[in-house]
Amino acid sequence: MAGHAAKHDYHLVDPSPWPFVGSLGAFLLAVGAVGNMKGLVGADHPLAFMYGDGSFGGLILGFAVVIYTMIGWWGDVIKESRQGDHTPVVDLHLRYGMIMFIASEVMFFVAWFWAFFEYAIFHEVRLDPGLAQWPPAGVETFNPWHIPLMNTLILLLSGTTVTWAHHALQHGDRKGAKLGLIFTVILGVCFTSLQVVEYMEAHFAFSMADGGNLYGSTFFMATGFHGAHVVIGTIFLAVCLVRLLAGQFTPEKHFGLEAAAWYWHFVDVVWLFLFAFVYVIFG
């Protein structure tokens, strides 16, 4: 859709409502979240169901707008890609963009690992003797060789199936691509399910209100954020599966799938670090 006179391959995108709507969604989500956590209006305020303490109305509204934006925005991207706006240089943009996005995600996990290591290694400065040891008194950690090992194998396997899907697609083997993706999505769901089982079996609490301490905080937040990324990655892959079935990917052009695969590998590597440090070395 670039201006007709343009003598270059860049994609000058048409004006779009999504950035504004999406920002509004983020704002509504934030206000809704604070309403839910702290209550921005009193219990008998007419808007209490939206922004009262413990309410979900505002959260749901914000979330809905954000999801709506994502569908609309990325829908537009897919449309533009199919119109041929994604010339080779634009394709390269997308690659750079995805790499940089993943780099920022890596730094996000650095924060959670930092908190974990700080406690795992430097716990002796704590004044309370029960908390100055590792693992802290009363914390029964997981045996890394049960569910965590299984989950490791699942993720590693899923890493190979997604590569299989990608290679199959590159070689025009649509059936293989389909199978590979289906397996990957299923493995992703398996991982999440096992993680839920593990959480339910945990012998340490998340919240200090339930007797938890920093061990539970770092464990659940680090693995929890990883889990959230697995879920997002699974959805990403599922969308790619749908697009594959709809015939939107060709052996030459399928960056959506590649991006999903990169993301999936990133999630995989984070897990390997979690497994090595949180479960095995400091388990």
Binding site: F108, F109, A115, L131, S207, N213, M221
Partner: peptide
């Protein structure tokens, strides 16, 4: 990440910066 820890310490009982929880 740090801001998120503040948020969960404030609202969900995590102990990142709370000495009483390590």
């Amino acid at each position: 990440g740090a801001l998120t820890m503040l948020l969960t310490d404030r609202n969900f009982g995590t102990a990142f910066f709370a000495p009483e929880g390590g």
